[in-house]
């Protein structure tokens, strides 16, 4: 009973309840609800950690060799990023959890709805039997997690900016100032980008070792490059041309949509060498 699927079912509920608490916190603006929401998030993260550990024991290898496993890893990283925000900014930015924890809930929910063959524990195929798997996947997913958090904050920015312009009391009053959100958005993309870059480079090194070429224009590779171009465009706009606010928020949303396609779309729609995940 105490297997990884059971744990991720529990996880789904914990994240769901936590994210509901955040919404209630937003509406009622009572501090104790915020504390409860955060406590539940930390609990969720612990269950998430346990799910990864149990999966490692079950499979006897690093637990991210298929779509289901990587989703559990992604939500773990995203929530860890959120807890890091909480630690760094004390509880001033707690409300960011309303979006981030919801994202983690959606991730676990989507993983739970995958067809069984994307969840099952299968022996690694020869192409994946390599230590590069660990490095390549971890770095890539730290990058994805950074982009996911930036996406959530980008959405918050757009909501907050609108309510600031109206100047009336609103549902989003608890959100941090748009200026702070803008800064945070940049920071998470600045974490995501080097990691995704490193993930691509490690993938290239591995490909060169396993397939005999560092770049084959396989759909996954191509889409990772597309994502890279989008965020590279973002940095040029922001750092050189001074884009701020709404423009960069939209960029972080478009960028993340491309990430979702890179991660899920390519696996399901476009055939290629990366067919396994």
């Amino acid at each position: 009973m105490f297997n990884s699927f059971f744990l991720s079912d529990i996880l789904l509920w914990v994240y769901l309840i936590a994210s509901c608490c955040y919404i209630v916190y937003m509406a009622l603006k009572k501090d104790w609800i915020g504390h409860l929401a955060f406590a539940l998030t930390v609990l969720g993260w612990l269950v998430n950690t346990a799910a990864l550990v149990v999966r490692t024991i079950e499979t006897g290898r690093a637990p991210y060799a298929n779509l289901y496993e990587t989703m559990v890893l992604l939500s773990w990283l995203v929530i860890m990023g959120y807890i890091a925000i909480e630690l760094k900014y004390s509880s001033r930015l707690r409300i960011v959890g309303a979006v981030i924890v919801t994202l983690a809930f959606l991730a676990i929910g989507a993983a739970a709805m995958l067809p069984y063959r994307y969840q099952a524990i299968e022996p690694l195929i020869p192409a994946l039997q390599s230590n590069w798997l660990i490095l390549h996947v971890i770095t890539t997913f730290v990058g994805y997690a950074g982009f996911a958090i930036a996406f959530g904050i980008g959405i918050m920015y757009l909501l907050k900016e609108r309510s600031e312009q109206r100047g009336k009391p609103s549902f989003f009053d608890r959100f941090p100032s748009s200026e702070l959100l803008d800064d945070l958005n940049y920071k998470f993309i600045a974490i995501g980008f080097p990691f995704v870059t490193l993930g691509i480079i490690l993938g290239a090194i591995w490909a060169n070792y396993a397939w005999g070429g560092y770049w084959s224009w396989d759909p996954k590779e191509t889409w990772s490059l597309i994502v890279w171009f989008i965020y590279a465009g973002y940095f040029h706009g922001r750092l050189v041309r001074g884009w701020r606010g709404r423009k960069t928020a939209y960029f972080s949303i478009i960028g993340f949509i491309a990430v979702v396609f890179l991660y899920w779309g390519v696996s399901f729609v476009l055939p290629g060498l990366h067919a396994y995940a």
């Binding site: 759909p219 191509t222 889409w223 490059l225 171009f229 989008i230 465009g233 040029h236 050189v240 390519v266």
Partner: peptide
Amino acid sequence: SVKLAVVVFFLLATGSILGT
């Protein structure tokens, strides 16, 4: 110009999408 860089990024990304 940085504008050129951003435009080239855009074109490369679009072209790559077409290729997939």
